[in-house]
């Protein structure tokens, strides 16, 4: 299979066109305009989706799925709202759908248990290893949460979004987000104790 990248030759001209113009074209069904927007937003979608996927192929599929949701939803986009906000709203809700639909399968799979971690044979960067171990532990704790709890914690504590922004992205009230987050953190704390990983 051949892969081609036709965007390089026209990139100079494309950068002169404002985003709103690309959006307007994409809303009208211009596939090239959508591909341009997809390339622009892909890193942000990748960063958000990486908090929910468990492997790189799964992440690539999830990002692709989010892009298709955006493409299908574009006719319903109203320019009154910022395009980025609309994109992230669709992405967050897509990630939530992904969590719900994959929950049973994910429960049957085994994760790396932090209590059974082996010492790395390759003495890499100590700092990087500490981050990876923290990520593994957080992933293990998140796996035990309900999809809604997981979504809230991911947006608030891992993506560092504010309560108001999180509420807007998920479509809940701010108080609902706060209550959910509080309960979810409490559960995480309990799981942490169960695993014997408290410092």
């Amino acid at each position: 299979m051949f892969f081609f990248d036709t965007s390089r030759a026209t990139r100079k001209v494309e950068t002169e066109i404002p985003e709103s113009e690309w959006v307007a074209r994409a809303v009208k069904g211009d596939e090239d305009a959508f591909v341009h927007l997809a390339m622009s937003y892909r890193p942000r979608l990748w960063a958000t989706a990486s908090r929910f996927a468990r492997s790189r192929p799964e992440l690539e599929d999830l990002v692709q799925d989010l892009l298709l949701k955006l493409w299908r939803g574009l006719p319903g986009y109203r320019s009154a709202a910022p395009f980025e906000h609309w994109v992230m709203t669709v992405a967050v809700r897509g990630c939530y759908d992904f969590l719900r639909s994959n929950r049973r399968r994910r429960e049957s799979e085994t994760l790396v248990d932090p209590t059974e971690r082996r010492e790395d044979r390759d003495p890499g960067d100590e700092r990087a290893r500490s981050r990876r171990e923290a990520w593994e532990t957080v992933s293990l704790l998140l796996e035990r949460l309900e999809p809604k709890d997981r979504l809230v914690i991911t947006l608030l504590d891992l993506e560092e979004r504010g309560v108001r922004e999180t509420a807007a992205l998920i479509g809940w009230t701010e108080s609902n987000v706060k209550v959910r987050a509080h309960r979810a953190r409490k559960k995480m704390r309990e799981f942490l104790s169960e695993l014997g990983l408290e410092p």
Binding site: S50, S55, R56, L59, R131, A134, W135, D157, E160
Partner: peptide, 14 residues
């Protein structure tokens, strides 16, 4: 845990 986990990019760049 969150502070450390936030800095980890498990799947690298796209």
């Amino acid at each position: 845990l969150f502070t450390e986990a936030r800095l980890h990019q498990p799947f690298g760049e796209p």
